[in-house]
Design a protein around this nucleic acid. Sequence first.
DNA 1: CCCTGGTGTATGGTATACCACAGTACTAAG
DNA 2: CTTAGTACTGTGGTATACCATACACCAGGG
Lengths: 228, 228
Amino acid sequence: MTKLKVAVKPIGPDLSLKERSYQALREAITNMNIYDDNAELKLDERTLSQQFGISRTPLREGLARLEQEGLIKIVPRRGVYVVRKTKAEILDMICVWAALESMAARRATKLASEEGLSALHDLVDLFDYDDVTGHMGEYSEANIKFHQAIIALGACDLIKEITDGLFMHVRAIRQRTIFENDRARRSIVDHKEIVIALEARDTERAERLVREHTLKLQAHVERYVDID
Amino acid sequence: MTKLKVAVKPIGPDLSLKERSYQALREAITNMNIYDDNAELKLDERTLSQQFGISRTPLREGLARLEQEGLIKIVPRRGVYVVRKTKAEILDMICVWAALESMAARRATKLASEEGLSALHDLVDLFDYDDVTGHMGEYSEANIKFHQAIIALGACDLIKEITDGLFMHVRAIRQRTIFENDRARRSIVDHKEIVIALEARDTERAERLVREHTLKLQAHVERYVDID
DNA sequence: CCCTGGTGTATGGTATACCACAGTACTAAG
DNA sequence: CTTAGTACTGTGGTATACCATACACCAGGG
């Protein structure tokens, strides 16, 4: 077969409309203006389909996926509503996060390459103890990056998949969880200790530090975040 | 307000067709004849819609949910296929299971009531060390029950939700994982030790025992189960 | 003035018709 | 006989029309 295929480009990013509506909606909901104030929580199928320029059929298939993912709730004969997580659900998510990331840390002490660990080390060095003030936005991003990096080092695709979903949900209430400077500083200290434990290949310690670090966040949300 | 509300029953279980097709398909796929042999892995939308007596529209919405859940894969323009988990995916699922159940055990040592623990104790007493032979089917059920009970004691709805999903997927390959008697016996011993640790409220030990118990299964699958 | 019943409308649920592409079979040419 | 090309068919993707219900608004009666 000397069929000289012209590099015709992997065709378009011709995702099906179902896929595109799913992703677009997901994007829209997670980045939604303000999620907790008096934001519009009702979605209208016909309006949406017009906005996207597609018919209701693929749109509804996307909505069905969104519902399965827990981002929206479809009430028969009533409409589709953006779901507002309860405080208990948030706490549960952080709990699962703690369980999975600590397992990832445990695995990382056994599986991670030296290069991977040093890359992680670089991530925490980006922010210094005194440097945090005024860079909360960036730090918040770097914070997520750090945790995702640990999870990546754990080399378990399913853990990555589930935690990505959790982060997506949690991002929706990020605005409410104002990380005060003090918390950020203590967080940085925790991160440094975690990296040290990982580099020392100290499985038990790395697992414990990661778990406790995340459970600190859980306790903080429990005490100070007021939703519902 | 002295409104004497009559307990009027939550009305009918008027599930939508989308919901029913979703559940029916899910049921059908998880209990599917033999999942690994030469079973039919291609699903035909029109045939299914006729079998269910509904149109393709709600059926496809159900399929979209199934795909999101990972039970099927919809290949654009090609069709929908029942997904066959790879060995790596199975191992990942057991890994997540270990992480979540050990976290549940940890929480159980702090949250569980004495009644809950004694109920768990009863579960392990149902099967004795020598009693397992010939009752593998029942034991397999009791085994799942035991793990679900621990998760329930952890009192984290999301952990329950996720692990339920994992069990559903794993059930599909249960047939392949022949639990030989020896494994069952050792499993029973593990279970008894776990209960003891829980009743002693020994958080660290309970966490460790549960994790190691599940990781033993992972190692067993890794070594002896051959799929793909 | 309030409460109740009915009608109308808007919106979600379902069915169906149509379209586009992939896979296959058949035919023709080398 | 083999291979390539073309046409046909079947299946998934999409659009649209129709149906059923929930909610709002209005009218009439208490």
